[in-house]
């Protein structure tokens, strides 16, 4: 579904030296994968993800998505290809002056989706992420988890085959993280979407990914197949916080 072949991203720095953010990376992501990319901060995992839809233009190498060499496309064709690759971000990146409905409508407008069917499609994806009732709200009136769900609906609106997730839960608390992971999992199951997730959170990667690449210093350190553990129930009630706090104190005393 996605192949990166010998892809590098080099930045020229002020002192005329070069910085290899991504250094000759090759990897292939299969249709139906929930593919994890993990690594420490600055390892290059976000850059790697952004190379898949050419949000970062590779300095060298080839990016093939769904049989199409993106690195060789005209600007217009690249835009068209991007319309079938959904993407969500750590900070949601919604247009705050547009309502939930308008935000989800945008990708349909961009893709010249048939006008009469747009509203129905918006309703459909919002229902899928469970936000149908909040269509006329503005992002500032929503919680973090709701915002990310709007972003997911926006990314799904144009029926993409691939969903790229850049630290999708890093700005969210554990309860909300679980909520988002469940949405991602049902997208994978019900809509047959290949998902690529970049995260530094081990629990997240372990819970839903079936294949994981560890990135270090801009290079592939290792790729492993794993069995997703399932989403851990992390119900952080006030009681949970209390036990966590007091248990620690007790073990300190002991």
């Amino acid at each position: 579904m996605i192949s990166l072949i010998d892809v590098s991203k080099v930045y020229n720095q002020k002192d005329n030296s070069t910085f290899h953010a991504i250094d000759s990376v090759s990897l292939s992501i299969n249709r139906g994968d929930i593919y994890g990319i993990i690594g420490r901060s600055g390892a290059g995992k976000s850059t790697l993800l952004r190379l898949i839809n050419l949000l970062e233009i590779p300095s060298s190498g080839t990016v093939i998505v769904d049989g199409e060499d993106l690195t060789n496309l005209s600007k217009q064709k690249l835009r068209h290809a991007r319309q079938s690759i959904g993407m969500i971000f750590q900070h949601f990146n919604l247009v705050s002056n547009k309502t939930v409905l308008e935000n989800v409508l945008v990708p349909l407008e961009l893709a010249r989706y048939p006008k009469k069917e747009r509203l129905d499609r918006v309703r459909e994806v919002l229902r899928f992420v469970g936000l149908e009732d909040l269509m006329s709200k503005y992002p500032s009136q929503l919680s973090g988890g709701q915002k990310q769900r709007v972003a997911i609906a926006r990314a799904l609106a144009n029926k993409p085959k691939i969903l790229l997730c850049d630290e999708p839960t890093s700005a969210l608390d554990p309860n909300t993280t679980k909520e988002i992971l469940e949405v991602l999992q049902s997208i994978h199951k019900e809509l047959d979407v290949t998902i690529v997730i970049v995260s530094h959170e081990m629990d997240l990667i372990k819970s839903i990914c079936n294949r994981v690449t560890i990135i270090d210093n801009g290079q592939v350190y290792e790729t492993v197949d794993i069995k997703p553990k399932g989403i851990v129930n992390s119900d952080h009630t006030p009681d949970w916080f209390l036990t966590q706090l007091t248990e620690e104190r007790e073990s300190d005393n002991a």
Binding site: L55, R79, Q83, I85, N93, L94, V106, L110
Partner: peptide, 21 residues
């Protein structure tokens, strides 16, 4: 926010669409 422009690009918006939408 730069992220909003980035989201627009990721959705395949043209420069004109990024400006107006």
């Amino acid at each position: 926010p730069k992220g909003v422009i980035e989201a627009a690009i990721s959705m395949g918006a043209s420069t004109r669409e990024i400006i107006f939408k």
